[in-house]
Amino acid sequence: MLFPDYRPRRLRQSASLRRMVRETQLQVQDLILPLFAVEGKDVKNAIASMPGHFQLSLDHLVAVAREAHELGVPAVILFGIPTKKDPMGTQAYAKDGIVQRAVRAIKSKLPELTVITDVCLCEYTDHGHCGVVKGQTIDNDLSLDLIAQTALSHAKAGADMVAPSDMMDGRVTEIRNVLDEAELSHVPIMSYAAKYCSAYYGPFRQAAESAPRFGDRSTYQMDPANAREALREVSMDVEEGADIVMVKPALPYLDIVYRIKEEFDLPVAAYNVSGEYAMIKAAAEKGWLDGPRVMMETLTAIKRAGADLILTYFAVEAAKVLNDR
């Protein structure tokens, strides 16, 4: 039997050969670790649906950030859970808010670690929505100033980057303007540009205590069926001044990651969200999957699709595997 001149198996014969010709190289510096900050001292509340992750008081938060930093993870992204919530989410932009204090705590101990802050109102409003509510409607334009003030307060606290996740139209422009006016033009914006109204966020809403009290977020987050709309969303955010654009979730939207990377000459981030993490953890616990292998295959797929940065709850675990290699 005659074979073609090219035999792909020739380059699969050993681990060394496979590494030499590997097209996609997942690296520790690709990873960003999400962290949840809460009030108090010596608080470490387990998140049942996200094994290995916790709501952390600042003392524990700094310790976890330090572990990630020592493993080579270049950045963390902070989410805050306040003790008090109100209709306008005032703790989101308070000078002494939980995220603002978390930024100062980490930067004082780990100045070389990049600290990114999630900019949204949902964790701070008593209704759980990402903007100002009028009746049963989330008012886009009334929300913009509060979102911009939140980003500004994070930057003043020392955040290295702000990441608006609210999906209000025009928020990147508003944030860029307030940062520039405050002489903080050096602070980059990582925009959740294509954020879908996804069922994969379930565990996160438990972790951040941010489930909406009425309705859902389909009037401002994207319809999962749409792809061309994602390109328009990204184009708008780029024109408004975004420095990095993000797709969220990652795995169900790898086609979107790929299309955005092909279309735009800008760093692309992808958020490997809580539901994706929880499914792998649950299946591994049942013995149905090899957890570490599926974790690395998943992260490699996200990188292969075009993501330059991956926000993932696997960051510390994956860093240990990559460092051992």
Rank of each mutant, 00 (worst) to 15 (best):
269 A>T: 04
234 V>L: 02
57 S>I: 02
124 Y>R: 10
215 G>H: 05
111 P>Y: 01
297 E>C: 11
20 M>K: 13
143 S>H: 04
42 D>V: 15
106 I>D: 01
31 L>W: 07
4 P>C: 08
297 E>S: 11
322 L>W: 11
292 P>G: 14
255 D>E: 03
52 G>L: 10
213 R>T: 15
166 D>K: 07
141 D>T: 13
259 R>H: 05
213 R>Q: 15
29 Q>T: 14
5 D>T: 14
135 G>P: 00
243 D>N: 09
113 L>R: 02
67 E>W: 03
278 A>L: 11
236 M>P: 04
169 D>C: 07
265 D>W: 00
56 L>R: 12
190 M>S: 13
50 M>N: 11
292 P>V: 15
313 Y>K: 07
234 V>G: 00
115 V>F: 07
125 T>R: 08
294 V>R: 01
92 A>P: 12
196 Y>D: 05
254 L>H: 07
289 L>W: 08
205 R>I: 02
208 A>F: 10
143 S>L: 08
65 A>G: 02
239 E>R: 12
15 A>F: 12
294 V>I: 14
86 D>F: 00
204 F>Q: 09
19 R>H: 11
211 A>S: 14
14 S>L: 05
184 L>Y: 00
25 Q>F: 13
113 L>Y: 02
34 P>K: 03
274 S>G: 01
15 A>G: 14
263 E>T: 15
45 N>E: 15
186 H>G: 11
22 R>K: 14
111 P>M: 03
201 Y>R: 02
119 V>L: 05
226 N>P: 06
319 A>C: 10
314 F>E: 07
113 L>S: 00
146 L>D: 01
185 S>K: 04
191 S>N: 04
204 F>E: 07
145 D>W: 08
127 H>K: 10
281 K>Y: 01
91 Q>A: 15
316 V>C: 08
97 G>Y: 10
59 D>G: 00
16 S>C: 06
176 R>H: 04
42 D>T: 14
287 G>R: 01
162 V>P: 06
138 I>E: 10
177 N>K: 15
209 E>Y: 00
169 D>G: 06
68 A>G: 15
133 V>Y: 09
250 A>R: 04
286 K>W: 09
161 M>I: 12
318 A>L: 10
81 I>Q: 01
311 L>F: 08
292 P>M: 15
164 P>I: 00
89 G>I: 07
103 V>R: 03
109 K>P: 09
17 L>F: 10
144 L>C: 06
